[in-house]
Computed example of a mutant assay.
Amino acid sequence: MNRMEDKVAIVTGGARGIGRQIVETLSREGARRIYSLDMGIGEYDLPNVQQVQVNVTNRDQVAKFVENVKNEVGKVDVLVNNAGITRDALIQKMTEDMWDAVIDVNLKGVFNLTQAVAPIMMENGKGSIISISSVVGVYGNVGQTNYAATKAGVIGMTYTWAKEFTRKGAAVRSNAIAPGYVETEMMATVPDKVLQPIRDKTPLGRLGQPQEIANAVLFLASDESSYVNGHVLEVNGGLRL
């Protein structure tokens, strides 16, 4: 049996990279419908994927989108908070704009979608919220004060929601995934002299693949993880920054 059969999912940042892999994986596993949210449109030819241009930082856009989903299909089984950006600099050189942009997308965006979707899940009595954190949110990293703050914040919200959304008996689970360094389009621009030390520090000796993150999302999205709640799953090859 397909693990996503009859499930309705929302994936933010779904046009490329890890988000695209997540969308394709949930699609293959038989989801009834997947809403792929992004500022741009990806190249999908999948009958159960609907692409929607939504800015996750815009609360009005998010509210309107989620209301439309509720009217169209009546439920949301899975929310994957994947959208994120980086604006790296040492703290002495980090501008207020760099700080605000990352906080807005990576933290407020996760808050906006979850705040809109969680009541639908609680009303239906079940659901799975999966927020993408990072190894940087767990261990910190030079030049990423803003990014580390948001990804650590995602973990804090995840723990809080695991308690909040189940208070009245609904089986609405909230978990996070903390990937290590993954071979995406974004990483393709990073010089090998930067990536090789990361490989050397990773016990498995390599970077991750987008599919390996998508596999973790699939597990937490499916009923196979029905007793997993308030957990941060590190998918990083053993890397400790």
Results as ranks from 00 to 15, higher is better:
97 D>A: 14
79 L>S: 12
144 Q>A: 04
104 D>W: 03
145 T>F: 05
111 F>D: 10
130 I>Q: 02
109 G>L: 05
120 I>F: 10
110 V>R: 10
106 N>P: 02
103 I>C: 04
82 N>Y: 08
114 T>F: 07
129 I>G: 00
100 D>Q: 12
98 M>Y: 08
95 T>Q: 07
83 A>E: 01
119 P>N: 09
77 D>I: 00
98 M>S: 08
80 V>H: 09
95 T>I: 11
92 Q>S: 15
82 N>Q: 08
77 D>N: 11
128 S>N: 14
92 Q>I: 15
139 Y>H: 14
116 A>V: 03
79 L>V: 11
106 N>S: 09
125 G>I: 08
98 M>K: 01
113 L>N: 12
104 D>C: 05
118 A>D: 04
119 P>V: 04
135 V>A: 13
96 E>F: 11
78 V>M: 03
144 Q>W: 03
115 Q>K: 15
140 G>T: 03
127 G>L: 02
139 Y>P: 05
133 S>M: 02
126 K>C: 12
94 M>D: 07
136 V>T: 13
95 T>L: 11
80 V>F: 08
90 L>I: 13
121 M>A: 06
112 N>M: 10
84 G>F: 03
143 G>W: 00
130 I>R: 01
114 T>H: 08
88 D>K: 06
77 D>Y: 00
111 F>S: 11
111 F>A: 11
104 D>Y: 06
105 V>T: 13
115 Q>D: 11
125 G>D: 00
80 V>R: 03
104 D>K: 13
82 N>R: 02
110 V>C: 10
119 P>W: 06
109 G>C: 09
125 G>V: 09
142 V>L: 14
121 M>H: 07
122 M>K: 15
133 S>P: 03
117 V>C: 12
89 A>C: 10
87 R>Q: 09
100 D>A: 13
101 A>F: 04
91 I>F: 15
139 Y>S: 12
124 N>P: 02
78 V>S: 05
140 G>P: 09
77 D>P: 07
77 D>V: 00
142 V>Q: 13
122 M>P: 08
85 I>S: 01
87 R>S: 14
91 I>C: 14
140 G>W: 05
124 N>W: 10
115 Q>L: 09
139 Y>L: 00
113 L>V: 10
119 P>Y: 13
89 A>V: 06
111 F>Q: 12
85 I>P: 01
95 T>F: 13
136 V>Y: 04
116 A>R: 08
86 T>H: 05
87 R>T: 04
121 M>F: 12
112 N>F: 10
101 A>R: 11
146 N>R: 00
82 N>W: 07
86 T>K: 09
81 N>K: 04
111 F>G: 10
101 A>D: 15
120 I>S: 09
99 W>C: 07
135 V>F: 08
144 Q>F: 00
111 F>P: 11
96 E>A: 14
123 E>P: 06
